[in-house]
Design a protein around this nucleic acid. Structure first.
Length: 528
RNA sequence: GGCGGAGUAGCUCAGCCAGGUAGAGCAAGCGGCUCAUAAUCGCUGUGUCGCCGGUUCAAGUCCGGCCUCCGCUACCA
């Protein structure tokens, strides 16, 4: 069975993860968990990028080898953050792995054999003090026109070195027509437009190797050069799933099964690498193109892009320690329109947690299960004949699941969640209107009370399944509390497609109240 | 400069593609209820829809111009 293949970018290991990284990973995790819940085969891939000058320099500054530096950050920060946000990734790749190195080298040999790699001189401003080529943004021009290196405060020299170039220019027309034929291959539309206007300027060949850098993957045909870090990093999407392994091997067959990617999730700052360079590379190697590159927005703190220098780089555990991983996942998927920039503030998160999770969903679970315990000794009764109130909820559930599924598949997490939230509100309203506490006082209303209690629990059953991809821990707990595990099996085995089918909870199921799903939290004395 | 996005209630945002009496949630106030996590349900107010002009019976929505913020504009993880 072909796999629904989703990737995050591989994160650059020159620093510890912040909530911007966690945001991307969370989105991919919700998306892939949703597809699993639909019964699809899924591969969710993430990882880290360890090569390049910046890592090399960070390691030197810390007085360790680049590999030691990476090993430490990866094991102490990048792997643990997956657990912090409760990500269920299938793969985690490090670009220093042998498997990746071999795949990258194999790839570029193929591309070279296909005639898309050639040798030429790269010329640019070079600072002897830095011992490296400077980029236009890294140099300053003095009043008399001298180009200076700001690090060493001395003039740069124009130097040239032999590099290997990728014939990117050969793919301008192919990329334009590809995206014209399938505009949804880049989303949202603003990202598509940006790429198209870039492509229409025409593409220039690009240097794909460096002789001045040592921390990277050597070119198989030129040991003095390493692969430029982007042309190493992008390949993780195929090397991670078996590209370049022995034909006919199990890994090679996995690659055939999983590739192409269904969605590459990227921050909008790295859109061009994914929507231009990467597909061109794949064409050059004769491989299929990803079905979609989705560029999401940035998290804004105090109206500005999060940045370390402004001390707005927030560690995921800072939030998760207080609110929990489920609330973290819920908040970022619900409060921010995926594809747009979104504001984060502690106050907003706290307000939504209290109102939507504690008072809304958590309290509904609490009152529903508590009443079955209180009025029926914790045993779910069979429902009597439905009235309009019950029929309405059943019908609403049908449209809720349909709408939610449609929006989640379109990566519109906020609307998908909104559909579920509105259903939760409808059930809360139903409880208030039916007044089961009043029915309980009148023995003649026993069957009616049975119907109401059953309707609440059966609704919670559906809510539980729909919210499981977003909030796995809390919904697994609720599933237990409903007694659904004993009656219906694992929550992970419930299918979205049959969630709206009414009457799945068997009468006689033992329901227990359990701990509060989202306890009200004392205000933490923290600044946003 | 060019291209693109954004500017709507105190806050966060939807609505704009297919014009028809300004929306949601939160926050605030009042009321109902008491199963529940001081929770839930109902009611209530507020807006020069960035500015100017045009098209139209009718413009937040379409057209032109302008202002502000942001992004992209070739090898800066």
């Amino acid at each position: 069975m072909a796999a629904y293949y989703v990737t995050t970018p591989i994160y650059y290991v020159n620093d510890a993860p912040h909530i911007g990284h966690a945001y991307t990973t969370t989105a991919g995790d919700v998306l892939t968990r949703w597809h699993r819940q639909r019964g699809e085969s899924v591969w969710y891939q993430t990882g880290v990028d360890e090569h390049g000058t910046k890592v090399q320099r960070a390691a030197e500054a810390a007085g360790v080898s680049p590999q030691e530096w990476c090993d430490r950050l990866v094991s102490q920060a990048w792997i643990p953050v997956l657990d912090t946000i409760d990500a269920a990734n299938d793969g985690f790749i490090r670009t220093t792995q042998e498997q990746h190195r071999l795949g990258v080298q194999r790839f570029w040999e193929v591309v070279r054999d296909n005639g898309y790699v050639y040798q030429a001189d790269y010329e640019g401003p070079y600072c002897v003090g830095c011992e490296e080529f400077k980029l236009p943004g890294d140099v300053v021009t003095t009043d008399d026109g001298t180009i200076m290196c700001p690090v060493h405060d001395r003039p740069v020299e124009m130097l040239s070195e032999a590099n290997w170039f990728f014939r990117l220019s050969a793919f301008t027309e192919a990329l334009i027509s590809h995206y014209e034929n399938d505009p949804s291959a880049i989303e949202p539309v603003s990202a598509h437009n940006e790429v198209m206007s870039f492509l229409r300027q025409g593409l220039r060949d690009i240097s794909m190797s460096r002789s001045s850098v040592t921390w990277g993957i050597g070119l198989p045909w030129d040991e003095k050069q390493v692969t430029y870090v982007w042309f190493d990093a992008l390949l993780n999407y195929i090397t991670a799933i078996g590209y370049g392994t022995e034909p006919g091997s199990e890994q090679a067959m996995e690659f055939e099964r999983i590739w192409p990617a269904d969605v590459h999730l990227v921050g909008k700052d790295i859109l061009r690498f994914h929507a231009v360079y990467w597909p061109a590379m794949l064409m050059a190697a004769g491989l299929a193109l990803p079905r979609k590159v989705f560029a999401h927005g940035w998290l804004l703190v105090g109206g500005e892009k999060m940045s370390k220098t402004r001390l707005t780089g927030i560690a995921p555990e800072f939030i998760v320690d207080h609110f929990g991983s489920d609330a973290f996942r819920y908040y970022f998927m619900r409060a921010i329109n995926f594809g747009h920039d979104g504001s984060f503030s502690w106050e907003d998160m706290n307000a939504r947690y209290t109102s939507e999770l504690a008072n809304g969903l958590g309290n509904l679970a609490s009152r529903g299960t508590a009443m079955v315990e209180r009025y029926r000794n914790g045993v779910l009764p069979a429902a009597g004949p439905p009235t309009d109130a019950e029929t309405h909820l059943q019908t609403l559930l049908l449209s809720t699941v349909e709408r939610c599924d449609e929006r989640m598949l379109a990566l519109d997490f906020a609307e998908g969640i909104a559909a579920i939230r509105e259903y939760v509100e409808a059930v809360n309203l139903y409880v208030t209107e039916q007044q089961p506490w009043a029915l309980a006082k009148d023995d003649a209303q026993a069957e009616r009370l049975n119907s109401v209690l059953y309707t609440i629990i059966e609704s919670l059953r559906a809510i539980c399944v729909l919210y499981f991809p977003v909030m796995p821990k809390a919904m697994a707990a609720l599933w237990q509390s409903l007694g659904a595990h004993a009656a219906l099996g694992e929550i992970a085995d419930q299918r979205i497609q049959s969630t709206a089918q009414w009457g799945q909870m068997p009468a006689g199921t033992v329901v227990s109240k359990g701990e509060n799903l989202f306890p009200r939290l004392a205000d933490a004395d923290v600044q946003s």
